[in-house]
């Protein structure tokens, strides 16, 4: 079973994402901001990370930049999942080392399609 860390400051979004990903056979852990996510990754790298952009303490793009220079931090497949839906954000995310990008709102089909494209399914 692959592991996925769901990073979002909204409890509701984390729950929706968890439910979808559990039906796709992922073992889910959660973090409510980038710092919490980074701490979790440094203790154990997940296979996948579903990552919100705008969060308090540390946002998603900062987290991603920290992750990619951490030991073993190049391994997790990172899929952004954010309301930021303009090209400049997408380009910035991909340059920072994201593997895919989901623009909210999302549903199971979108998550499944994107996770398949990056080889997680």
């Amino acid at each position: 079973m692959k592991s996925c860390l769901v990073v979002d400051d909204s409890k509701v979004i984390r729950m929706v994402a968890r439910r979808i990903l559990e039906t796709l056979d992922f073992e889910i852990s959660e973090a409510k901001d980038g710092q919490e996510a980074l701490d979790a990754c440094l203790s154990e790298m997940p296979d996948a990370i579903l990552l919100d952009w705008n969060m308090p303490v540390m946002d998603g793009i900062d987290f991603l930049r920290h992750l990619r220079v951490s030991k073993g931090g190049d391994a997790p497949v990172v899929v952004f999942c954010t309301t930021e839906n303009d090209m400049s954000h997408i380009v910035e995310a991909m340059k920072a080392g994201a593997n895919e990008y989901i623009m909210k709102p999302f549903d199971k089909e979108i998550i499944e399609a994107k996770f398949t494209q990056v080889g997680l399914l």
């Binding site: 997408i90 991909m94 979108i110």
Partner: peptide, 13 residues
């Protein structure tokens, strides 16, 4: 919605 179902983000960009 349509550009997210099946289209890899690298092609979108």
């Amino acid at each position: 919605f349509e550009v997210q179902r099946g289209l890899p983000v690298k092609y979108l960009m």
